[in-house]
């Protein structure tokens, strides 16, 4: 029963979701919306509790074992509790303050302020690293070690040259050739991969509906 019930739910809901794609009637679409949004949101809320439990357990274990860089775990735990208290008691909407005051004089520590002034700049910093990683990855990719790498190097060289305005004056046909590389061979390869991906998704979905693929059940169970 522990295995049969989830399989039955997946079969029924899966077939319903596929049918809802073909049926535009609002009765069917509204039930589909309930499954997609409301039910998923309720499950996510329960999972979030497990997730928070997981973070706490992970960092308490690190502190207990004095694992590498364990003092940082204190920062994580303290930050988690501070933001949870501010968010829960101070409210999430700046226009509707909660029971906890989030402004002392001109200093605001409202959850939105913390998010905008700490999380957003930190995330932007991580994102900015991408530029440097691109440069190092490009260096690695452009070493002509074999035929494929040489081909990649040649294609990239043409595309880069094609993007430079001066090339149109010095080598007039090159920008058009660069455009052709993007529009024809590149698009053809992408579409080929796209077909494979679509069929892979279809086959995986079918295997899940038929109960052949049961990894999502939490392991084999076959």
């Amino acid at each position: 029963m522990k295995r049969q019930l989830p399989l039955l739910i997946v079969l029924v809901v899966g077939i319903f979701a596929a049918a809802a794609f073909l049926i535009p009637h609002p009765i069917v679409r509204s039930v589909d919306e309930v499954f997609r949004n409301d039910v998923l949101r309720i499950i996510a809320a329960f999972s979030l509790v497990l997730g928070v439990g997981s973070i706490l357990r992970h960092h308490f274990i690190k502190i207990k074992r004095k694992a590498a860089h364990w003092p940082f775990s204190y920062i994580t735990i303290v930050a988690l509790f501070i933001s949870a208290i501010i968010g829960l008691l101070g409210g999430i909407d700046p226009n509707r303050p909660g029971i906890l005051p989030t402004q002392v004089g001109g200093f605001s520590f409202h959850i939105q302020t913390l998010f905008s002034n700490i999380m957003v700049p930190l995330a932007a910093t991580m994102f900015a690293l991408l530029a440097f990683f691109m440069a190092s990855a490009a260096y690695r990719a452009f070493r002509a070690r074999n035929f494929e790498a040489t081909l990649l190097l040649a294609a990239a060289f043409i595309l880069m040259l094609g993007a430079v305005p001066l090339t149109r004056i010095v080598i007039p046909p090159l920008p058009d050739f660069a455009e052709w590389i993007l529009a024809v061979p590149n698009t053809a390869a992408k579409r080929g991969i796209g077909f494979g991906v679509s069929l892979g998704i279809f086959a995986t979905s079918l295997k899940i509906l038929l109960g052949i693929e049961r990894g999502w059940l939490g392991g084999g169970g076959s």
Partner: peptide
């Protein structure tokens, strides 16, 4: 490490089952 709490739950059960198997 997981980013999504639901994926975390499923991944944990999957790994647990694999260790048992």
């Amino acid at each position: 490490p997981n980013r999504d709490p639901i994926v975390y739950t499923v991944a944990r059960e999957t790994v647990k089952q694999s260790y048992t198997e």
